[in-house]
Every structure is written in C-alpha cells, then in structure tokens.
Design a binder for these strands. Structure first.
Length: 311
RNA sequence: GCCGAGUUAGCUCAGUUGGUAGAGCAUUCGACUGAAAAUUGAAGGGUCCACAGUUCGAGUCUGUGACUCGGCA
C-alpha cells in the first residue's frame, strides 16, 4: 500500500448487529468521524423505523451522510459514492481515518471495488414508459430487445428481473452506449480495513424481533402517521422501506397490529439474508469478529493498529 | 358413551375417476453499477398417524386402533 493512499475503516454487518454503537466507540477511541453507509439514514424524515442513531448518539461523534436528503429527492448509489469518497479524502487530509459503517452492501462494495457507475440520473418517465411497454408486449420480449442491443448485459440480468432490464435499456437509450460497456470496476484508491460483526442467525433474529417490538411501542406508528399526513406516503411506498410499508398498510386498516409485527419481522429477516450476500463469511478481506465478544472494541483497535502500522 | 369432521414438508393446507406427492409461508444459498431496507433467481426438506386387508399397484378404497376438533348425551 502506498503512503499516500487515503485510509478508511469499514465496519459492516447485518441490520441490528450493533454497528451503530460500536462505530461510535471506535471513532471516539480513534478521535475520528463516522461516515454512514446506510441508504435509509440519508433521509431526514426516516427515524425510528430505520433504527437511525439517536440525537444523543449523533452528538457523541461527528456523523456524515445522515439526514442529508429529503424523501421526495431520493439519493442514489452514484451520488452516495461520490460524496462518501470525497469525505474519506477530506478526513484523511485532516489526519483522521474515518469509520465507514452501514448495512447497505451495495454502497460499501461500490467503494471497495471502485465501481465506475454510469453517470446518468434516473429518468422516471422513461422508466415508467418502458414498464408500460413491458406490460404491453411482455417483459420477455422487452428483454429480448435488450439481448439484441447488449448481449453481455442480457447475460448478467435475469429476464424476470424487470427493474434491472428497464435500467439497462434506460442507459442504452439515453447514452447510445451499451450498458455493459459503461459500467466497470477499478482498483480501490483506498487503503481499507474491513471489520465484520458476526452473529448466529437465531440470536440475530431474536434481537431483531425485540427491536421491532420496541420500535412499535416507541412511537414508530406515530412517526408513520405524521409522514403520511405530510404527504410522504407515495415516496415511502415507492421506495419500499421495511417497516414503513407495513405500518402504512396498518394505518389503512388492511392488516391488524399483530400481522403488522409479523410482517415487519419476516421482511427484516429476509433483508438480513440478502445483506449476507454483500458481506460474506468467506470474504477474505473481512475480519470477522464475534459481535458478542466483550473485548470486541480492543480487538478492533488491535486490527486497526496492525493494519495501518506499516504506513 | 354416541354422532360427525379431521390426521400429508417446520406451519397452514391442496391432492382430480387408485399409478409412491404439490402450493403459500418459513428455512438456506445466489445475482446485484444512479430506486438497493429496492428488484430478483435457485435449492433443501415428507416411512402422506399406525397396523391389517382389497389390488399388478393405496395419500387416495375397506376394516381396526391411536390422537385432535366439534356436536349430542
């Protein structure tokens, strides 16, 4: 690793694994700051249901990329990567090794693998049009069109995945270039230490269940009711935020409270399993630590020392 | 005690006129380049309550037993 490579500590793990608290402790010990890698912490309007760090927690250590967007102006992977990388650079200039933490695997991987993301903002109208066409002519036919224009992209996109098919076509139509040609990976410009928090599934599921019960008893329903009355129902449903979707159904009298709880728990477990695809036990770069180890903070500090001592 | 209904995957249940079984949910694994807490693919898992009988062949028909749930006494 070269001397001038900006350094970053990534703290990853599934939802409810304890990242928030440990990141704060770690950042305090290292006198540094936290960069969130959570696609739902970005939005000011989302709080209890996303288990966002509390005011009190946020005041302990400087956090970045939390509460920086509005629900009606959603961020994206491209924007996230740009901002996060800028922050990593800047904090390094101040002599700090930032702690990048969050559960959005795509964001983390984009930085780790230095994804070159097509610089093309989402065109909601075009997407909508393509979806309508897909429904008319059949998504298989739409997909066949993609195969003709960009066979490579068709190879890595499942024809049943409408959303990805539509995005690929969107890029092709708007740029005239094949989707598979504009996206790429690159060597990471950062010297990163990646620490993962490991839990047994059963225990994690239990923690999640408890956390959801606490959210629902702790004002989550009121939070969603306020959002709905402030006109955020549409963006919330479109975005598909676990918890919010189910509570909206509850407020609309489509399901009762018991069912709401069950559904949120079920969907959160599914999310945990999807997250595990981004943070794999077999990933050679992730230093997995047992999340329940009482000495975990010391172990993290050891890892930091060992990893960065060379430079 | 009598009458009725039932017993099939971890759970809830399908299973057509007999040809050794399916769905949803759950569980597990995978994909992911400007919506990603999104979107999406795949897999594992059943001595079909037990025993006997009819039949070339029984989850399916017959008998007996066990258990469950209703109703009546």
């Amino acid at each position: 690793m070269s001397e001038n490579q900006p350094k970053v500590i990534m703290l990853v793990g599934p939802t409810a694994s304890g990242k928030t608290g440990l990141a704060i402790q770690l950042a305090q010990a290292l006198k540094t700051e936290i960069i969130s890698a959570d696609s739902r912490y970005l939005y000011r309007q989302l709080n209890i249901g996303t288990a966002k760090p509390t005011e009190q927690e946020l005041s302990q250590v400087r956090h970045h990329l939390v509460d920086c967007a509005d629900l009606d102006q959603p961020w994206s992977i491209g924007q996230y990567k740009e901002e996060a990388e800028r922050l990593i650079q800047r904090l390094n200039k101040d002599g700090k090794i930032p702690v990048l933490t969050g559960g959005t695997g795509q964001y983390i991987r984009a930085i780790r693998q230095n994804w070159q993301i097509p610089e093309l903002e989402a065109d909601t109208r075009l997407r909508h049009t393509l979806e309508i066409i897909g429904e008319k002519i059949g998504f298989e036919t739409l997909y066949e069109n993609l195969r003709v224009m960009d066979p490579t992209a068709a190879d890595f996109i499942d024809y049943r995945n409408h959303r990805r098919t539509v995005r690929a076509l969107e890029v092709i139509f708007k740029t005239g270039i094949r989707f598979s040609q504009i996206r790429s990976k690159d060597e990471s410009p950062f010297d990163s230490l990646i620490i993962g928090l490991h839990w047994q599934r059963e225990e994690l599921y239990q923690r999640i269940d408890n956390r959801i019960d606490r959210m629902l008893d702790g004002g989550f329903i009121e939070e969603v009711r306020d959002l709905v009355s402030n006109g955020y129902k549409e963006p919330l449903l479109r975005m598909g935020v676990i918890g919010y979707t189910e509570v909206i159904a509850f407020l609309d009298n489509q399901i009762d409270l018991e069912e709401t709880k069950t559904l949120i728990k079920r969907n959160t477990r599914k999310y945990v399993r999807r997250q595990a695809n981004w943070f794999k036990p077999t990933d050679p770069e992730i230093h997995w630590l047992n999340a329940q180890d009482p000495a975990i903070l010391e172990k993290m500090l050891d890892l930091v020392r060992d990893h960065f001592k060379a430079n």
